[in-house]
Design a protein around this nucleic acid. Structure first.
Length: 539
DNA sequence: CCGTGGACGTA
DNA sequence: CGTACGTCCACGGC
């Protein structure tokens, strides 16, 4: 590939220099205090672990911003820059890399095929080649910068996306500290004792199933993992439903021991299968850290994603996430992040005024002359595109009270319905997928998607700006961000630095908000506390 | 073997 | 007909 692991391009005030290997860069201390340009943070793990740079431009991360979607391989970056056809990013290149084999790296023209290593691991062997490659990386970065500048010019988003990509590498490396004995207890409570043999596993599974079967008339075994069989089982018990989703069965729970047992079984089954003993063995290391793959921006609106269940850990297991001895977890939740972000990106003065309150939904309720739950549901419905139910009836009041914000959302929805992409506040292109014979209903679906994407995407951008500010401010305290969860941060920090970390998290929020919003009169709040376990409530 | 849909966890 | 994602499962098509 064009940027084999280890290709590292450093941009400093002295100009561009390239290093053939990460080891080389680490050895030379090249990163400290530098502005760094590289292809992708994921290939820079060794370097990030030793010398995380202060500021970084990540070609792959910015490419996702500029191009939209999740594709960010080298071919995609190169071909976008050089105007090659999408889907046909390069012509087949056989043999040695023609870019450098020609010896004239600066003569590469638009439309040129992607230069490849082509089995030549030492293709960056000469200083000339490395310098040439550095100039191409810089060229792409400048081009990306110009594309973002054309879109309302929020090129600080590129910094945040690049930093988030680096943070993702750190999150993967460090992992989330777990209290293994507690986690094992919690898993055992749902999945049974750790199976030693395959027979053990089968028996545990059957034991769980029997807790449901005993409520079945006749007591015959039913495949509880087959939705059709479950539906038939329920029908014979007098519970007739179209599907067996939990929210649909919940009303029958009180009157039917079978339904109650089934719903209880599903919770246990979820933990047993997804978060069970094999999950523990696979993702929790010998250092008692839970690790998963992190992605700085998903293919949709650009939120961070994580694997290994890090973003969907069931609440019952959260007591198993705990600080190491001598450390604490500083947990911070952003309050009502999406409507506050909406106030910034839409520049609605009335909604901005409402954000002055800690309890934004109470303020909105006053503005709308409805009760707080109604106001909350209505505002969320407006951002999700819901039109039915009681929320639909309040939409009119919402339109009259916050016309600028509602017009902003409507505009985004209309773009999606027309099949047009939208841009987030930070300039991320959010493409929509249009089929050749989409129905009106599918167009509406696209509208709901883009309506939500401009809010959810901007919230993700603000979250990253906040997280990166926190990362920098807690570093001197030996604090490390160990989890990012859309509007929530967990910082692992030595106990004696707990209060300082809380102050850092909160001041970072104000700093990030001021910079990110361009000084808009919109308030952001966080609920921040010091805990031993993730599950703990503020006391 | 692979894609799809049901189901459910999180925000 | 409220958004997004990750994961496991059974099924039906190869």
């Amino acid at each position: 590939m064009v940027s084999p692991d280890g290709d590292c391009t450093v941009v400093s005030d002295a100009g561009v220099s390239s290093f053939g290997s990460v080891d080389d860069a680490v050895a030379r201390g090249a990163m400290a205090g530098r502005r760094v340009l590289w292809w992708r943070a994921a290939a820079m793990g060794a370097l990030i672990a030793v010398h995380p740079p202060d500021r970084v431009w990540d070609l792959a991360a910015v490419h996702r911003l500029v191009a939209g979607g999740s594709r960010d391989d080298d071919e995609a970056i190169w071909s976008l820059r050089h105007g090659l056809a999408p889907g046909e990013p390069q012509r087949a290149v056989e043999g040695p890399p023609d870019l450098f084999a020609a010896g004239e790296p600066d003569e590469v023209q638009a439309g040129a095929p992607l230069p490849r290593a082509a089995g030549t691991p030492d293709w960056l062997r000469s200083a000339e080649h490395r310098a040439a490659w550095g100039r191409h990386a810089l060229d792409i970065a400048c081009w990306q910068h110009d594309r973002l500048a054309e879109r309302r010019g929020r090129f600080s988003a590129a910094t945040a996306e690049s930093g988030a990509a680096m943070l993702c590498v750190e999150l993967e490396q460090q992992g989330l500290p777990v209290d293994r004995p507690v986690l094992e207890e919690l898993i055992a409570a749902s999945a049974g004792a750790r199976p030693q043999t395959e027979d053990d596993a089968v028996r545990a599974r059957r034991t769980r199933d029997e807790l449901v079967w005993r409520h079945v008339p006749g007591g015959r075994p039913v495949d509880l993992r087959n939705p059709g069989a479950v539906r038939e089982m329920l029908r014979q018990a007098g519970v007739v439903v179209d599907d067996t989703r939990a929210w649909h069965l919940e009303p029958y729970r009180a009157g039917s021991p079978l339904v109650d047992a089934l719903l209880t079984w599903r919770k246990a089954e979820r933990i047993a299968t997804t978060y069970g003993w094999s999950w523990l063995a696979e993702f929790v290391g010998p250092d008692d850290r839970l690790r998963g793959a992190w992605d700085a921006s998903d293919g949709g609106a650009g939120r961070m994603t994580a694997g290994s269940g890090l973003h969907s850990l069931p609440a019952p297991l959260r007591p198993g996430i705990a600080a190491e001895p001598g450390h604490v977890l500083v947990r911070a939740d952003l309050g009502q992040i999406e409507p506050r972000v909406l106030a910034v990106v839409s520049r609605d003065p009335a909604l901005a005024e409402a954000t002055r309150s800690d309890d934004l939904y109470a303020e909105i309720a006053t503005d709308l002359s409805v009760d707080r739950p109604t106001a909350k549901v209505a505002m969320l419905a407006a951002m999700y595109g819901q039109t039915s139910g009681t929320a639909g009836q309040v939409l009119g009041r919402l339109e009259r009270t916050y016309p600028t914000a509602m017009a902003f959302l409507r505009s985004a929805a209309e773009a999606g319905e027309r099949g047009e992409p939208v841009l987030t506040y930070g300039g991320r292109l959010v493409p929509v997928h249009v089929g050749p014979d989409d129905t009106t209903a599918q167009a509406r679906g696209r509208g709901r998607f883009t309506r939500n994407a401009v809010v959810q995407g901007a919230a993700a951008e603000f979250f990253k700006a906040w997280a990166l500010t926190v990362r920098a401010e807690v570093a001197p305290l030996r604090g490390r961000i160990v989890l990012c969860l859309h509007d929530e941060l967990l910082v692992h920090v030595p106990r004696e630095a707990a209060e300082a970390a809380v102050e850092a998290v909160d001041s970072a929020l104000q700093n990030a908000a001021r910079r990110w919003s361009g000084g808009a009169p919109v308030r952001f709040v966080s609920d921040t506390g010091v805990f031993h376990r993730w599950s703990e409530e503020k006391g």
